[in-house]
Design a protein around this nucleic acid. Structure first.
Lengths: 129, 129
DNA sequence: TCTTGACTCTGTATTGGCTACAGGGTTTAT
DNA sequence: ATAAACCCTGTAGCCAATACAGAGTCAAGA
């Protein structure tokens, strides 16, 4: 499986795959005679893991730890749980931040006359605390 | 008002103030005899505007547009409303994405035994699906 | 008065997580 | 046979800051 094929099957950008290899997230695959990377299903699985993790907001270092746990073949459920809990907390705080933003935006928009007047409540809400 | 004072009064990092000037978001202030930047209340207000906007998730370009409307002294409420609406939409989509993450994380954590077993539901949920 | 520390100046490098490009080689389809 | 589409490498760029190096300036204490 060449890089472009893995990219297509995973939906991951082909350059990103090379990047993941460079930073040590995805192991370097064996090379075909022509020098092309040759991936197998294990790479596919691992890339999928990485993609899922990224979607869920784990950063590269988180994923390195998670994958090192996997690689040791001695996954301590407890360690993983701890990371996930911390992560859940940060997700929840992001949600509440965004909710505040949402409320303010929605409110100021609703108070907007939509006319060509110099008094725009949105602009004003940005100036005045 | 020197840079450090503006930084202290606004809570903005002093380097960030210089950065905002460099990218044309905050106008260059006049210089004191010693070459130090000398800010006035107008800079303070504008920086506050920028900070509020960034908090609300507007990016630098958004803020440039908003500030150019302000500077033209011809704020069209309608233009601003459009930007805010688009932005509100993106905020809402971020929220719903995070909600999904939250649900998956919460679910997998709750299915976690917490023991030192090699079958970790969280890890598995990242591999499978 | 001297000195020490805190500030300011400039330009540049670094961060994270990619993405894009330049300049070459190879494969595939027509 | 040739053109398009892929692959290789290394490097530069993106956003929104942040940090650092090396120099100048200022205010307070000994």
């Amino acid at each position: 499986m060449k890089r472009g094929e893995l990219a297509a099957s995973s939906g991951c950008n082909a350059e990103t795959i090379r990047y993941y290899e460079k930073i040590g997230l995805l192991p370097a695959p064996r090379r075909a005679a022509n020098g092309y990377r040759d991936y197998d299903e294990r790479h596919e699985e691992r890339l999928h893991f990485i993609q899922r993790g990224r979607e869920l907001g784990f950063n590269i270092d988180d994923l390195k730890s998670l994958l090192s746990l996997v690689d040791r073949n001695a996954v301590s459920c407890h360690e993983v749980e701890e990371m996930a809990k911390q992560h859940l907390q940060s997700v929840r705080s992001k949600i509440s931040q965004l909710r505040r933003m949402e409320a303010i935006l929605a409110e100021t928009i609703s108070s907007c006359s939509g006319e060509d007047v110099p008094e725009c409540p949105l602009i004003e809400s940005l100036f005045n605390d």
